[in-house]
Design a protein around this nucleic acid. Structure first.
Length: 873
RNA sequence: GGGGGCAUAGCUCAGUUGGUUAGAGCGCUCGCUUCACAUGCGAGAGGUCGUAGGUUCGAGUCCCACUGUCCCUACCA
């Protein structure tokens, strides 16, 4: 193969992806001979565009899937999209607005038609974008939260929960978004500290000139006040409890009541009670049988209960109410105040707590087993700390408001008989009323929270409620990987749903990653305009570079920063892989390469194979622990430092030499190491590894379905590798000395060695000659045998002398050696104090003590030698 | 109010159950057109691991407090 001088991913990424698809490598079969390994995708929104968060999700999951597939598992990466009820509906409404249309104009049917068209138009976009990342999803199983099976699962689950009494309908305070005109769950509200005011109001006591002062942050809600509450133990108000107040502006008579909820220390100690517009007040209202007067419409304007303020927007009404209160003397003072205000997570409107009839999931019975599953290690969070966050949320969880006043989504499977009022909850559409047999049925207008269907994702995508082969084989899934920002929205809900409906935990491991931020550490957002389009990065640097840069140097659960520099560093690594491979393949051309087992390995051969084996071990171990960053780092070091900087350089003399057998043997090792390194790298950088792999002599088929390397203790050559590092140390020492005196690298120098290991070193003298720029390597007992003036450096096993007479500045050389001596003496001190410590020698593991002793000896010997050098200068 | 993260080289970050002389990338200095790669090669400089205690033979790593910083969560009107 003709390889380009530089790595150019555009030449092959799309082509290889197409080939993989055509050959069906992504497809996971139900195969009893294999162990299944399943990951379901965190489904991106159908209307969404790929962003770096998706890119990270997909890179992590795909790396795990490819790793397991190569290990022989039937690995299923199940892709799909989420209908994203609110997000999509908002977009369609916006689009209609451009045409001058509203939801009302087109009606429910017309709207849904548009929505499905939208889905057809944009639903495929994100899928195509994901393919650019190289993900090995089984596209034949592409799922959608509103496809037939997922919808069936939703009804099954809804009805079952309803029958168990775990779903109920009722009037509760919910979070109302006046922008989206729908109820929201607690999780869908984002709080921020907003600057506002405290309005202190006084309400007169009926039939007296007494009054009571209350404070509020939402003065317009006073129109719906039905009481004022004080603490029963509050001496200040004891006599007032039971008296009646006249609500200013409205004239309504409201009681003063006593309730424990009121904090005496806060404000005036008296609280206006608005049961329709505040969750606490609602509870107080229930306890005291207070009327619930809602004063606001769904769109955030005031309703007919607001009297003169009817029709006004809530904020206009607020101003008017304040003005009017001031005019009638009821406004005591206005105080600046910042407090937590809830905002809709989609449209950012300020959320109104409002009483409303909605459907709820009773959470307490579901939360318990879900907490247990984690506590009893049936599900493991990585990193561990997130289980605490999970408990925290689950233990304090409140009922889940699941109905949404939207059209795009799963319509609630409940029908009302217009004739007799019967409510029918059914998995299938009923035709008539089971009580009065009338046919005048009306389905509930609302749809379900998007997350209600996402919660079923790990099993609704595999066939649930049917016990399909897929379901039996691939469920429970193995790993769930997503960002920590959706633990509550998604992970927690899948856990309790999975346990409740399938009686099994939906996955064994939860692997959480952080947020990808911009270069300055800010969250990427539309409003800041600091988002990075992964597709542009892929276009410029290739998918492999982006994948590698997203994973490398990142620990699970930690946020990371995207930077062009990081991608460039990864791209450079790809280029390095490319060129190392190019080097091997170019040299291999036309050579008959013997299998590794048939050749006699040299010291450098054994060294690189040994390094490869420890790399295999480290990668496998860390993949198992989800430490992808560490695994990727180990590969980077192995390939760049060990393989390229050392081994390839060491090979050159035999490759360019006369000995054909030696050359073939060297190529055998080069190919063996390259092949294995590519396999190890493949889960991270699938394209480049595949492109090269197929061209290695003797290799057949796709790397995607090759066996992942297994650690082989027989090839670990620990002793030989260590010994060879002594030769490498000599090379480093020579280079070091040459640089210290500004000797040009091209200038050859003589090298004298005093060493106990002459055999190994003379066998590798050519390496020293080539890599250190030595004209000759001679052995001596001591520097006395060398006629010229030399520089010297002590390594672990040798003393290296280089005659650089004319270049050497004696004073500088002395300084250099003195510094070296200082370092060694420091080490000796450290080792001695350790070994003189009975605690250490008695309690530390034997091998550590032994290692410390060896170290001490080594340093003592080095010290002697260095002192010698200084004396002889 | 409750919970959590982070604090290690100029910058961005790794550092796996406590145990070699604390690492990488980028940046910096010096030197290299060495026939795979200048998206490169070689040699360096640079860190008392936020502060103060504690546990331990041994702490960047575990515990406590403090400081700074970011985030999540919560009904104080």
């Amino acid at each position: 193969m003709e390889m380009q001088k530089t790595y150019n991913p555009k030449d092959f990424e799309d082509r290889l992806y197409r080939e993989w698809m055509e050959r069906g490598y992504f497809h996971a079969e139900v195969d009893p001979a294999k162990v299944p390994f399943t990951i379901v995708i965190p489904p991106p929104n159908i209307t969404g565009q790929l962003h770096l968060g998706h890119a990270l999700d997909n890179t992590i999951i795909d790396a795990l899937i490819r790793f397991k597939r190569m290990q022989g598992y039937s690995a299923l990466y199940l892709p799909g999209c989420d209908h994203a009820s609110i997000a999509t509906e908002v977009k369609i409404v916006e689009e209609m607005k451009k045409e001058g249309l509203t939801k009302k104009d087109v009606g429910r049917e017309g709207f849904l038609e548009r929505a499905w068209q939208w889905k057809e138009k944009y639903g495929g976009r994100i899928v195509e974008q994901m393919k650019k990342m190289g993900v090995s999803c089984d596209w034949s199983r592409l799922a959608f939260t509103m496809d037939e099976n997922c919808s069936r699962a939703v009804r099954e689950v809804f009805v079952n929960l309803y029958r168990k009494g775990l779903i109920y309908r009722g009037d509760r305070i919910i979070n109302w978004c006046p922008g989206c005109k729908t109820a929201l769950s607690d999780a869908e509200v984002e709080y921020s500290e907003d600057a506002s005011y405290f309005w202190h109001l006084q309400y007169p006591v009926k039939g007296s000139d007494e009054f009571i002062v209350v404070a509020t942050t939402r003065p317009e809600t006073m129109l719906g006040d039905t009481a004022v509450a004080v603490n029963p133990n509050d001496a200040r108000y004891r006599d007032m409890v039971g008296k009646t107040l006249i609500l200013p502006l409205v004239g309504r008579e409201i009681p003063i009541i006593a309730d424990e909820y009121v904090d005496q220390e806060f404000g005036s100690g008296a609280v206006k009670i608005t049961p329709a517009h505040d969750p606490n007040d609602f509870e107080v209202g229930l306890r005291h049988n207070l009327p619930v007067i809602r004063v606001m419409n769904d769109d955030g304007t005031m309703n007919e209960n607001a009297g003169a303020y009817v029709g006004l927007d809530r904020y206009v009404a607020r101003e008017r109410v304040v003005e009017d209160l001031k005019a009638c003397g009821a406004l005591v003072k206005i105080e600046p105040h910042t407090h937590n205000v809830g905002h809709c997570y989609r449209c950012k409107s300020t959320v109104e707590p409002i009483v409303s009839k909605q459907w709820f999931v009773r959470m307490e019975p579901l939360a318990k087993p879900a907490i247990d599953a984690v506590a009893r290690n049936k599900i493991k969070f990585t990193p561990e700390r997130f289980s605490k966050i999970y408990y925290n949320w689950m233990e304090g969880i409140k009922d889940w408001c699941i109905s949404r006043q939207l059209w795009w989504g799963h319509r609630i499977p409940v029908w009302y008989c217009r004739d007799c009022g019967e409510m029918i909850v059914s998995k299938t559409d009923p035709t008539d009323c089971p009580r009065c047999h009338g046919r005048n049925l009306q389905q509930d207008e609302d749809v379900l929270d998007t997350w209600f269907s996402s919660a079923l994702w790990p099993f609704s995508t595999l066939g649930y409620p049917d016990k399909t082969d897929d379901f039996n084989y691939f469920y429970p899934t193995d790993v769930l990987s997503c960002g920590y920002d959706i633990i509550f929205f998604w992970v927690a809900r899948m856990i309790f749903s999975g346990i409740e409906h399938t009686k099994k935990v939906p996955f064994r491991d939860v692997l959480l990653h952080g947020i990808v931020r911009d270069e300055q550490g800010r969250k990427m957002s539309k409003s800041l305009g600091n988002g990075i389009d992964p597709l542009e990065v892929v276009e410029e640097y290739g998918a492999d570079s982006l994948r590698f840069s997203l994973i490398t140097g990142v620990a699970p659960g930690n946020d990371s920063r995207y930077s062009r520099g990081k991608v460039e560093a990864s791209r450079n690594f790809m280029n390095k892989i490319w060129n190392a491979s190019r080097f091997v393949l170019m040299n291999a051309e036309g050579v008959r390469i013997p299998p590794l087992a048939e050749i006699k390995l040299t010291a450098p051969d054994k060294w690189i194979i040994s390094k490869l084996e420890s790399c295999i071990k480290e990668v496998t171990l860390n993949m198992g622990k989800f430490e992808l960053g560490i695994a990727a780092g180990a590969l980077y070091d192995f390939l760049w430092s060990d393989f390229c900087d050392w081994y390839i350089e060491l090979c050159k003399s035999s490759l360019y030499g006369e000995d054909a057998d030696r050359k073939a043997a060297t190529l055998s090792v080069l190919c063996f190491v390259l092949e294995n390194a590519l396999k190890l790298l493949h889960p991270f950088v699938p394209f480049i590894t595949e492109e090269i792999y197929r061209n290695i002599p003797g290799v057949q088929g796709s790397i995607m379905v090759a066996d992942f390397p297994r650690y082989n203790a027989k090839l670990s050559y620990k002793k030989e590798a260590k010994a060879f590092e002594g030769v490498m140390d000599i090379i480093k020492a020579v280079r070091n000395m040459k640089t210290a005196v500004n000797c040009p690298p091209a200038k050859k120098v003589k090298v004298y060695l005093s060493t106990a290991n002459r055999r190994l070193i003379s066998a590798n003298a050519n390496a020293i000659a080539k890599l250190a720029g030595a004209s000759a390597v001679d052995f001596v007992e001591s520097s006395a045998e060398i006629a010229e003036k030399t520089m010297s450096q002590v390594t672990e096993g040798s003393t290296v002398f280089v005659p650089l007479g004319e270049l050497v500045d004696l004073a500088k050389e002395k300084e250099r050696l003195a510094k070296e001596l200082e370092r060694i003496v420091g080490e000796i001190g450290r080792a001695e104090s350790k070994l003189n410590n009975r605690g250490f020698t008695d309690k530390a593991p034997k091998n550590l003590v032994e290692a410390e002793r060896e170290k001490l000896e080594k340093f003592l010997e080095m010290k002697k030698k260095v002192e010698n050098q200084i004396r002889e200068l």
